[in-house]
């Protein structure tokens, strides 16, 4: 946006950017630097050798995969229905769904605790997957519906004339054409479910069911004030996300940008 003539000006603006970016580096640098203090790499070895270390990651992964699968398919199907199929008074259903758009998580806590106890899903990963998916479907449906509205109806008509059933139209037209939106949904739901803290904290208190976001705090409880070990744990917990982001920058930025606009 700024017009820069010549090398000197470009270098000057780069210098300003470096200064502005310093506050962003400080916490990241602190995390890595502190985690090597004292016993160096042994802090990491201690963290990795903690019994059940990998179950945090496994649980987070299972929750993320299940939530993504549920959100993806239900959103795609619902958007297809709302946008391209015949439903009597569909706007009523749509706005009922949009009524659930801005849900503070605390509203879910007591009911989910009761539900979990009564139905026997208490203490299983499902007790987190279900509210996580339910909270995100209204929003992903809002996004995807307006995207699918932009796909011409004539494509579906043509397919119908050629004898394609609804099922076929969904798989062969809608899913491929809505792929960019699908990626955005996957990233958005992945981040939201991987980073979720409050719901797992309340609904999965048991040892062996905990998720990555709880890892640093559990380290803190175990090592009291051994900062280097706690931050070694935090670094390990943050690493998968940072690597995933650096590898898939475009997708992450698009997904998060889509999620920012309600």
């Amino acid at each position: 946006m700024f017009e820069l003539r010549g090398r000197r000006k470009r270098l000057l603006l780069t210098g300003i950017s470096v200064l502005l970016v310093i506050p962003f580096i400080v916490p990241l640098y602190t995390m890595v630097y502190t985690s090597f203090q004292g016993r160096g790499i042994d802090n990491y070895k201690a963290a990795l050798q903690l019994p059940g270390f990998w179950t945090y990651f496994r649980n987070s992964l299972l929750i993320a995969v299940a939530t993504i699968a549920i959100c993806y398919f239900l959103t795609m199907a619902a958007s297809f229905g709302f946008s391209k199929l015949r439903i009597r008074s569909k706007e009523v259903y749509f706005w009922l769904m949009m009524g659930a758009l801005t849900m503070p998580e605390v509203v879910l806590l007591t009911p989910m605790l009761m539900m979990a106890q009564k139905t026997g899903i208490g203490g299983t990963l499902w007790s987190v997957i279900i509210p996580l998916a339910a909270m995100q479907i209204p929003f992903t449906t809002l996004l995807t519906r307006s995207y699918v509205d932009g796909i011409p109806d004539s494509l579906f008509e043509a397919a119908r004339i050629d004898g394609a059933g609804t099922w076929r139209q969904f798989w062969s037209i809608l899913v491929p054409l809505a792929k960019p939106m699908g990626m955005a949904i996957i990233v958005l739901v992945l981040i939201n479910s991987w980073n979720a803290y409050l719901l797992p904290l309340v609904l999965l208190p048991g040892e062996g069911q905990q998720v990555v976001s709880q890892l640093p705090m559990n380290f803190k409880a175990r090592y009291t004030d051994d900062q280097p070990k706690v931050l070694a744990g935090a670094t390990l917990a943050a690493l998968p996300e940072i690597i995933a982001y650096v590898c898939l920058q475009k997708q992450f930025e698009r997904g998060m940008a889509a999620g920012a606009i309600k």
Partner: peptide, 10 residues
Amino acid sequence: VVAPAIMSPV
């Protein structure tokens, strides 16, 4: 991108 819960000890 990184979870608030992971960054808070930092």
